[in-house]
């Protein structure tokens, strides 16, 4: 399988520009075949968007990238997913360490029912990423600044995170993910529960995050994909239909299914 993966790849897995490379990935939920033979490369400092109609498997695939599917008993993943050339499903890999490197932001803002400070400090604390309280303060401030919410919350770090507005909560969640210093940020429809203004703020943020991370975003909205991403993957019924530069996908798709979707005929 590995050999086959090596040969079928157009770009080598050792290519410095590739963060993630997934080859021939299949996912089963019990009897259901949710992802069918998907191969994708995710580049450094790039925003990659997964689009497609509901139930097409885009979220499922995203959750394979940091092994969040492990928490679901009936889910089974086969194929080869490599992060910096290392197989993340290798038995030697502790998913706990993987997830520190591959952070995740969810559909609904889910701040923990703790203070804002404790929310951000949660990751560094469990992974032991700091020595002194000052270190931790630095991590928290830095993360909040990078998530573009420092100015809004710096005076009330002790207030509960659940008291903020939806957009603020989602940016807290992003800051929380940044705090463990990940290489990749996975975002599962991060704006679907937000109003348009908050959405704009988060999108702007995603664009800034590209400087330091590679970002994978699952989105329902094609406009959003077009606005924030450089690469786009179109999923349909568990298949990866088309993957390429965002401009190309939206202006000149190769596959007729992609065209139907972006023109609004399916989805």
């Amino acid at each position: 399988m590995k050999d086959q993966a090596m040969t079928t790849l157009e770009t080598s897995v050792t290519d410095q520009n590739n963060k993630f490379s997934a080859n021939n990935v299949d996912v089963y939920y019990g009897e259901t075949h949710a992802i069918k033979d998907v191969s994708v490369n995710i580049e450094n400092n790039t925003v990659t968007a997964f689009i497609g109609p509901s139930g097409c498997g885009k979220s499922t695939f995203l959750r394979c990238l940091n092994r969040m599917n492990d928490t679901i008993d009936i889910c089974r993943v086969t194929g080869d997913i490599r992060l910096d050339g290392e197989d993340i499903y290798n038995a030697k890999v502790d998913p706990v360490q993987l997830r520190a490197k591959v952070g995740m932001v969810f559909q609904k803002p889910n701040p923990f029912p703790k203070s804002i400070y404790d929310n951000i400090a949660y990751g560094p604390r469990i992974h032991g990423l700091f020595k002194t309280k000052a270190d931790l303060d630095g991590i928290v401030e830095n993360s909040l600044r990078r998530a573009a919410i420092w100015d809004e919350v710096k005076d009330r770090l002790d207030a509960p995170g659940t008291g903020l507005s939806g957009g603020q909560q989602q940016r807290i969640c992003i800051a929380r993910a940044i705090a463990t210093a990940p290489d990749v940020l996975l975002m599962d429809e991060p704006c679907s529960a937000l109003d348009p203004i908050a959405t704009a703020q988060v999108e702007e943020l995603i664009d800034e995050l590209r400087e330091n991370f590679s970002v994978v975003i699952v989105t329902h909205s094609m406009q959003q994909a077009a606005r924030v991403s450089q690469k786009t993957a179109f999923f349909h019924m568990g298949n990866l239909v088309e993957f390429g530069d965002t401009t190309k996908i939206f202006t000149n798709p190769e596959d007729p299914r992609t065209e139907s979707y972006i023109t609004g005929r399916i989805g």
């Binding site: 706990v96 360490q97 993987l98």
Partner: peptide, 22 residues
């Protein structure tokens, strides 16, 4: 950032992680 997982390979399970798993 002593125990930072960033620089290390995923295959190395750090002591900190071992303690956590215990």
């Amino acid at each position: 950032m002593t125990a930072s997982a960033k620089s290390k390979s995923l295959y190395d399970v750090s002591d900190h992680t071992k303690r956590r798993n215990a």
